[in-house]
Design a protein around this nucleic acid. Sequence first.
DNA 1: CATATGATTAGAATAACTCTAAATTTAAAC
DNA 2: GTTTAAATTTAGAGTTATTCTAATCATATG
Lengths: 139, 139
Amino acid sequence: MNRKKKPLSHPDVEKRLVDAGVQPTAQRIAICGYILGEADHPTAEEIKKWADRHFPKMSRATVYNTVKTLVDAGILQEFKFPHSDAAVYDSNTDIHYHFLDEKTGELHDVQPESVDLSVKLKEGFKVKGIQILLRGTKK
Amino acid sequence: MNRKKKPLSHPDVEKRLVDAGVQPTAQRIAICGYILGEADHPTAEEIKKWADRHFPKMSRATVYNTVKTLVDAGILQEFKFPHSDAAVYDSNTDIHYHFLDEKTGELHDVQPESVDLSVKLKEGFKVKGIQILLRGTKK
DNA sequence: CATATGATTAGAATAACTCTAAATTTAAAC
DNA sequence: GTTTAAATTTAGAGTTATTCTAATCATATG
């Protein structure tokens, strides 16, 4: 089931976009509203399928253009995981990790507080970022 | 620079293959010898380029077939990382993690002893595997 | 409202594989 | 040692996810 996501009104989404310095076109409001308020780690293809049902007409290129714009604006994070070739988009822009349910393919955000790690590498290695994917099953 | 890799003789590689239950064809001996004795996290494309220089004639499909065979036989591990679409092949088949030098794109193996982590997730999450990519720079 | 800037579009192009069906090599049976 | 069967290799077509291109359309500003 989908964690506490609340649908967002179009004006709310529009404000989010404008605040982030993004021109609020109809396509962007639609896609952004879907990802922020409804979707859970959607791929571009899932966004396209959603748009085909909820938006009069949207090209695949617009989906890609838009998610890129939203990532650049700091509204989304993009992730790529080894189990799938498709990138996923996450409305959680804070540092966090992921858990992949290998049975269902579902991704769950993992808060950094749930993970306690320390890394000690040889001289010369400077760690600036950490990506963690936990794999397993979820009851 | 490449960590302590020693070239392997063809007979040694052949033995490795036979021991793993893999028919030791000329193509497999060549590719396996290259990855075990020389290469550092090569992609299929890099293996193909090496083969074009060191083997009379090898199709791209054979490169892909062969690395798949070697992975299935437990001789190699395959990894995919977010910074590149191409899979890489690792002669280290033990559990380990990676460090990506963002300046050079080089991957370095990270031994599990260098990483101390504990994960505590909510009830129902059973972790069966962990993938970690450290990103940064190396002097 | 004219015009420049920015966004959207369809479809072509690309990268990294995977698939297919035929040809070749190797192994197994006689 | 040939014949037969099984496994491997191959070229090229197909697939998937994404980017690029260049034309069209919308929006914002003077």
